[in-house]
Amino acid sequence: MTDVDLGLGVHHTSLSVADLDAQRAWYQRALGLHEVVEEFRLDDPAVRTVVLRSGSGVRLELIERAGASRNRAYADPLDAANTLGFGHWAVSVRDLDTAFAGIVAAGGAEVWPPADAVEPGARFAYVKDPEGNLIELIQPPTP
């Protein structure tokens, strides 16, 4: 393959969930993904989806499929790295401490509290949503 600019950008992230309605409400409340971009339903197989968008344009698709199961829950991001595939969803935030506290207050679980990141001036933290999915919060360095 040649070095071609594909115009690559993130369109959305997809997350399989056990309870679409509960997770939808939590992501709307805790992360501000208030806008519903689309909803979809299939009868066979039994699948429901919703795509949520934040005011800044971040999109998250939640998918509920009857009978889906989790192989195992991850304790933290290092534990997630023991399994191949996506381990967490990382989002940037303006104010890490405020975002972390708000997400935990909305029912998210604290995994790693706010700390300095490897990138100078950046900070990060990890939380879990109510179903145990890992979310990394990153506050980029101030320009």
Rank of each mutant, 00 (worst) to 15 (best):
V10K: 07
W89P: 00
D76A: 03
R70T: 14
Q139L: 15
R29Q: 14
D3Y: 09
L6H: 12
D129A: 02
N82Q: 11
G67Y: 03
V118C: 08
E61L: 10
G7S: 09
A109E: 12
D21K: 12
H88Y: 14
W26F: 15
F86V: 13
G107M: 01
Q28Y: 05
G55R: 13
S56R: 14
Q28D: 00
L20Y: 00
K128Q: 13
A18K: 13
W89T: 14
A99N: 05
L60I: 10
E38D: 11
L60P: 02
F100L: 11
A18E: 04
L6R: 15
F86C: 11
V47I: 15
P130C: 04
A106V: 09
L52N: 04
D79C: 00
R94I: 10
E110P: 05
F40E: 12
P114V: 05
Q23K: 05
A66C: 02
A122E: 10
P141K: 14
L42G: 11
G32N: 08
G102I: 00
D116L: 08
D79I: 11
R24M: 10
E35K: 13
N82W: 04
S16M: 03
A99C: 03
P140C: 11
L42H: 06
R41Y: 10
W89N: 07
V127D: 06
V91S: 08
A73Y: 12
A80P: 09
A105E: 15
R59A: 01
R65G: 09
N71I: 15
G57W: 06
V93N: 01
A46V: 13
P45K: 08
G87Q: 08
R70E: 09
V17R: 00
A81P: 00
G85Y: 05
